[in-house]
Write a protein that binds this DNA or RNA. Structure first.
Lengths: 215, 215
DNA sequence: TTACACCGGAGCGAATCGCTCCGCAAGTCT
DNA sequence: AGACTTGCGGAGCGATTCGCTCCGGTGTAA
C-alpha cells in the first residue's frame, strides 16, 4: 500500500525539521547563524522557511519557547521521581542532553514575550523546589544555590564537544563526544553531593546571571 | 617629569593590546570575529594590526601558541607544588581563569605549525604527570582519565558567563560572573575527589576529542 | 627644522546577509 | 481526466560586512 502524504503532513514535518535544524546550526555557528544555513540543514527551501516564520527573529523566539517548555517538563519529571537525588540528577542530565544553553548566544537578541516570561518564572520555581527537596533530604550539599545548578546546566549544556565536531564533519567522533559529555556531567553531579572537604568560594551569584531565564 | 614613550615602546604595547583584544573578541564573537572588531577593542588602527600580522590567520596562530604556552607553564607550576591535589586544582583553576577553551572555535581553522605540535604534545605529557601523581597519592578518583580533565577545562574555560555579559555591555555584572564561575570550578573539582558513590559512565574518551591539543 | 618611521582609518572588491518573488510540481475537487 | 489550488524551492535583490590595501597625518629622533 502506498501512504499518501497530504500537504499539511508535509508542512508539519518541515516545521519540525526547521526547528531541529535551527537549534543545531545555532549551536554550531552562534548568534550569527544564517537562515540559509538553517534551511539547508533542514533540507528545506528558504521560501518555505519564510512562509512559516515571517522573520528570523520569529523563528528564534519560537526556539526559545520550546527550550523553556523542555526545561519545565524535565523539572516536573524530576519532581515526580520519589528519590530526591535521582530527580535532580535526571533533570540536570536531561537539560544537558537537550542542549539547554545552546540558545544562550541569542538570549539578549530576541524580544521576550509574556508567554516566555511566565514560563521562565515557572522554571525558576520548579528548580527551586527540586533543589530544596534534595537539600532537605540531605543528598545535596547545602551551600549550593539553585542558580549554581542553573549555571552548571547552561555551561555543560552548550557542547563544543558535540556541536563543533559536527560542524567539522567529524560525525565519526560524535558518539564518543556524547559519552565524554556524560562523564563530565557525572563528575559535576558528584561534586554536588554532600561531604566535600571545603565549602564553595564567595556568595551565591544573583539570578540575573542566568541567561536561560529569558526574562 | 614627563615619561617619553619611544616608538618601539608603543609598538610593543600595541602588540600586547592586540593579543588581549583578539582573545576577548574571539571569546565573545566566536570564529567569525572580525579584524576590525579586534583592532577597535585594542584601541589600535586596522593598519597597525596588519603591519604586525600580515593576515588574520597569522594573528590567530600567534594566539594559539600563547594559549599552549600558558597551559604548559600552568602545568609546570602545578607539578612544582608539593601537594599533588593543590597542584592539580591550581592548574585547572589557572587554565579556566585564563580562558583556555575560548580558542576552540578556531581550533579547526588555523594551520598547525611544528612549534604548536611540539608544545601540544608536551602539554599532554605534563597533564598526564599531574593526573597520575594525584591518583598515586590517592587524592584523585582513579576512574578519571587525563582527557576528562582536559575536557573539563575546555568546557569551563569558555565562559558565556563572563564573555557574553561583556559583549552585552553589562560590565557591572562581570565580578559576579567571575565569582559564579569560580563556584562551578569548585563543584567540579570536588567531583574529581575520591569517594564518589558511583563510577563514571562509559570508557574514557579518546584524546582526539580535545580540541585544545591543536594537533 | 628636517627627515622619517609608524600610526589610523577611508575605501576597495568580494562575499554574505535577510528577505522577496515567481515558476513549477504535486495534491484536491468536479 | 482535466482544471484548480496550494505550497515548495531557489534565483536574485539591495544592504551590509568581510579581509585587506594604501596613503595622508602625527610625533619622535637627529
Amino acid at each position: 500500500m502506498t501512504t499518501r502524504t497530504s500537504r499539511t503532513d508535509r508542512a508539519a514535518r518541515n516545521d519540525r525539521a526547521l526547528l531541529e535544524a535551527a537549534r543545531a546550526v545555532l549551536a554550531e555557528d552562534g548568534a550569527h547563524a544564517s537562515v540559509a544555513a538553517i534551511a539547508a540543514r533542514a533540507g528545506v527551501g528558504i521560501g518555505s522557511l519564510y512562509r512559516r516564520y515571517r522573520t528570523k527573529e520569529e523563528l528564534f523566539q519560537r526556539l526559545a519557547v520550546l527550550s523553556l517548555e523542555h526545561w519545565n517538563e524535565a523539572a516536573e519529571e524530576g519532581l515526580a521521581d520519589p528519590d530526591p537525588w535521582a530527580g535532580l540528577a535526571g533533570f540536570v542530565t536531561a537539560c544537558v542532553e537537550f542542549g539547554q544553553g545552546t540558545l544562550a548566544p541569542i538570549a539578549g537578541a530576541v524580544e521576550v514575550s509574556d508567554e516566555m516570561d511566565a514560563a521562565s518564572r515557572r522554571g525558576d520555581d520548579l528548580l527551586d523546589a527540586l533543589v530544596r527537596r534534595a537539600q532537605d533530604a540531605g543528598v545535596l550539599r547545602p551551600d549550593v544555590a539553585a542558580v549554581d545548578v542553573a549555571l552548571l546546566i547552561e555551561q555543560l549544556g552548550r557542547s563544543p564537544l558535540v556541536d563543533q565536531l559536527r560542524k567539522q564533519g567529524r560525525d565519526d567522533l560524535l558518539p564518543a563526544a556524547v559519552r565524554a559529555r556524560a562523564r563530565l556531567v557525572a563528575i559535576a553531579l558528584d561534586g554536588l553531593r554532600p561531604g566535600a572537604p571545603g565549602g564553595l568560594p564567595g556568595d551565591p551569584p544573583g539570578e540575573e546571571l542566568f541567561t536561560g531565564r529569558w526574562a
